[in-house]
Amino acid sequence: MVSRRSWVEQIMGLPVSVLARGELADSAQADAAVRAVFAELVEADRLFSPFKPGSAVSLLARGEVGWDDVDPVVRAVAERCDRARDLTCGRFDPEVPGGGWDPSGLVKGWAVERAGKRLREVSELDWCLNAGGDVLVLCPSKRPFTIGIQDPGDPGRVVATVARADGAVATSGTAARGAHLYDPRTGEPVLSRWLSVSVSGPSLEYADVLATAAFVAGEEWPAVLDALPGYEGLGILANGNLLATPGWPAAGSAAG
């Protein structure tokens, strides 16, 4: 029987879990890597949370520091946000209407992907890192994990699955936080008959950005994924119907 072990902590206001599979799943090496992942995500939350008064995001918003005063990693994320804004033709934008800077639409995917490097250092370990439904996986065994796509109208129900042995799946929509997204180009709330858009691809950072931009795009969401090669999507309508782009990966028979 293949060994499995799981860990979970509450970080960024979300459950963050790691599922490890393989001979090293119960090893001290795997445990240390997971603890390092959690520590990196806690540090990212300390720097970037708009809800923490001492974060760089909050200090910038209050004008207590300037860009020259923040940690270099904050400036690096700002540059990544600028590239994401250009990539999505403005459908993703960290600039908040009325003033302020909030990179939340990019930071979670970026932070999870960066922290996942710790797990990559444990050779021959299959792992699935899940941060509130945004998922990064790597399976040296080539046996994929099967990732469930949540029903936006019923969080306890899975409406589709996708198999991945490497790469990421991110979802943007109304299930977790209600109608909270706005179109950066107009500053107006997003009104769409789509309840969620999930994006699968090689990078969680860009899957997250593209999922947000696709949801903002509404009826045009499949075209947004053409901005980068290797990304496919699944949209869920309010009536429960699904629409997948042609390359959306099929579910496998091997569950994680």
Score class of each variant (00 low, 15 high):
residue 134 D to F: 02
residue 136 L to S: 11
residue 138 L to V: 02
residue 139 C to A: 15
residue 141 S to D: 11
residue 142 K to P: 00
residue 142 K to Q: 15
residue 143 R to K: 15
residue 144 P to I: 09
residue 148 G to R: 14
residue 149 I to L: 15
residue 150 Q to W: 00
residue 156 G to C: 12
residue 157 R to K: 15
residue 157 R to L: 14
residue 162 V to A: 06
residue 162 V to R: 01
residue 163 A to F: 12
residue 163 A to I: 05
residue 165 A to K: 14
residue 165 A to L: 07
residue 169 V to L: 15
residue 172 S to E: 03
residue 173 G to I: 10
residue 173 G to P: 00
residue 176 A to Y: 00
residue 178 G to R: 10
residue 179 A to V: 11
residue 181 L to D: 09
residue 181 L to Y: 14
residue 186 T to Q: 08
residue 188 E to S: 11
residue 188 E to N: 01
residue 191 L to D: 12
residue 195 L to A: 08
residue 196 S to Q: 11
residue 198 S to T: 15
residue 199 V to R: 02
residue 199 V to Q: 03
residue 200 S to W: 00
residue 200 S to K: 00
residue 202 P to K: 09
residue 203 S to Q: 04
residue 203 S to R: 06
residue 203 S to A: 01
residue 204 L to Q: 06
residue 205 E to I: 02
residue 206 Y to E: 03
residue 206 Y to Q: 08
residue 209 V to D: 02
residue 209 V to R: 02
residue 210 L to E: 05
residue 210 L to S: 03
residue 213 A to V: 10
residue 214 A to I: 08
residue 215 F to A: 05
residue 217 A to H: 13
residue 219 E to D: 15
residue 219 E to Q: 12
residue 220 E to R: 15
residue 222 P to I: 05
residue 223 A to F: 08
residue 225 L to K: 03
residue 227 A to L: 05
residue 227 A to Q: 05
residue 227 A to G: 05
residue 228 L to I: 06
residue 229 P to K: 09
residue 230 G to S: 03
residue 230 G to C: 05
residue 233 G to R: 08
residue 233 G to P: 11
residue 234 L to D: 08
residue 235 G to V: 13
residue 236 I to D: 02
residue 237 L to Q: 12
residue 238 A to K: 08
residue 239 N to H: 06
residue 240 G to L: 13
residue 240 G to D: 10
residue 242 L to M: 15
residue 243 L to H: 12
residue 243 L to F: 08
residue 246 P to C: 10
residue 247 G to Q: 11
